[in-house]
Computed example of a mutant assay.
Amino acid sequence: MDPTTLLAFAAAFLVFAASPGPDNMTIVARTLSHGPTAGIAYGLGMVAGILAFLVLAATGLAVVAREMGTAMTVLRHAGAAYLVWTGIRLWTAEPVLPAERAGGKRPGLAASVLTGLALNLGNPKMPLFYLALLPNVVGASLAPAQVGILAMVIVPVEALVIGGHVLLAGRLRRMLRTRAAVRRANRVAGGTMIGAGVAVVAAR
């Protein structure tokens, strides 16, 4: 793959990754509610799912996507249900100032990682994205070396997008200095997560 082709792939993937959607909404919501670590944890699971599809692309993505249709649907609905449940809990939670969370119980980061992974493995847009784009980048087949090269493009692009959303949400979170402001932020974040879960289920 020549540098021009890789740059074109990076640009296309950046547009895909940065576009508004359930993943970016959830990263912002989790960062607002539980801090940057929670947002990054979800992002790590998201990237793992994206890379898993890249590996599947090397083994015949069209066939795999067809065979995994039921499993992808189950993963998508399970992840969406978790987002909705978490959003409802956040909406109804008592407001706690960020400074008061310092020594308190932290939410399970593993659950955030697994949710990001499940939602991306169940994302019907991922196979379509790769099927539409990869043949123009690497041709009909995808060798292991090409998987590694594309992964080295995907990871920094996702780091940029995830980091940008976490940074923005983190700055907004530091502005929460009253319980009333925290309650409003919780309800915005909770409503966002509920909306993200509904959007995931509605995706085709």
Score class of each variant (00 low, 15 high):
Pro3His: 10
Thr4Met: 04
Ala10Met: 05
Ala11Ser: 11
Phe13Met: 04
Val15Arg: 02
Ala17Gln: 04
Ala17Met: 01
Ala17Lys: 03
Ala18Leu: 02
Pro20Ile: 03
Pro22His: 11
Met25Asn: 14
Val28Asp: 07
Val28Gln: 03
Ala29Arg: 00
Gly35Glu: 06
Pro36Leu: 05
Thr37Glu: 08
Thr37Leu: 09
Ile40Lys: 00
Ala41Thr: 09
Gly43Tyr: 03
Gly49Ala: 04
Ala52Thr: 15
Val55Tyr: 02
Val55Gly: 04
Gly60Asn: 06
Leu61Arg: 00
Val64Lys: 04
Ala65Trp: 04
Arg66Ala: 15
Arg66Ile: 05
Gly69Gln: 08
Gly69Asn: 07
Thr70Gln: 03
Thr70Val: 09
Trp85Ser: 14
Ile88Met: 00
Leu90Phe: 09
Leu90Gly: 11
Pro95Leu: 02
Leu97Gly: 11
Gly103Phe: 02
Gly104Ile: 05
Arg106Thr: 10
Gly108Cys: 04
Ala110Ser: 07
Leu114Pro: 01
Gly116Ile: 00
Leu121Ala: 08
Pro124Ala: 03
Lys125Phe: 09
Met126Ala: 06
Tyr130Val: 03
Ala132His: 07
Leu133Asp: 02
Leu134Phe: 01
Leu134Glu: 02
Pro135Arg: 03
Gly139Asp: 07
Ser141His: 12
Ala143Pro: 07
Leu150Met: 08
Ala151Phe: 10
Met152Asp: 10
Met152Glu: 13
Met152Arg: 11
Val155Trp: 03
Pro156Leu: 02
Val157Arg: 00
Val157Asp: 05
Ala159Met: 08
Gly163Asp: 11
Val166Trp: 04
Ala169Trp: 02
Ala169Val: 09
Ala169Asn: 08
Gly170Ala: 08
Gly170Lys: 01
Arg171Val: 13
Arg173Leu: 07
Arg173Thr: 09
Arg174Phe: 08
Met175Ala: 15
Met175Glu: 15
Leu176Arg: 04
Leu176Gln: 09
Arg177Lys: 15
Arg179Met: 12
Ala180Asn: 14
Ala180Tyr: 13
Ala181Gln: 14
Ala181Glu: 14
Val182Glu: 14
Val182Ala: 11
Asn186His: 13
Gly190Leu: 00
Thr192Lys: 00
Gly195Asn: 13
Gly197His: 07
Val201Leu: 07
